[in-house]
């Protein structure tokens, strides 16, 4: 995987997730961060820090990005979410505009 095709997402605890750019861009917010004109720090370093998202949730989110890329076209598969994560995940989704 080429460096320029990936992006680094960093959780509140400092965990780094390196994922495909187009997977990350499932999130409208991340897409804006990476493509907005002008040189925001995120665009420059190709990494985004989320001080309010925990590692667990960010991991789930990354999983969702890939799932979405693969199945969003309407295939009948389920994305498994542990009930205890639901609320936080929904809030993160709102934040990330996913």
């Amino acid at each position: 995987m080429k460096k320029e095709d990936t992006v680094k997402l960093i959780s509140a605890e400092g965990f780094e997730f390196v994922i495909d750019k187009n997977a990350a861009m499932v999130s409208q917010t991340i897409r804006n961060m990476l493509t907005s004109p002008g040189d925001f720090a995120e665009t420059e370093h190709q990494e985004v820090t989320f001080p309010e998202i925990s590692t667990t949730i960010l991991e789930k989110i990354c999983q969702y990005f890939y799932w979405s890329l693969q199945y969003a076209s309407g295939k009948e598969t389920e994305f498994h979410i542990e009930p205890e994560l639901t609320l936080e995940l929904m809030m993160a989704a709102n934040y990330l505009h996913t």
Partner: peptide
């Protein structure tokens, strides 16, 4: 994001 069956539902503290 699609959510799962509700079992063992527990609301975590608001993190913001």
């Amino acid at each position: 994001m699609s959510s799962q069956k509700k079992r063992n539902f527990q609301i975590e503290a608001f993190k913001h």
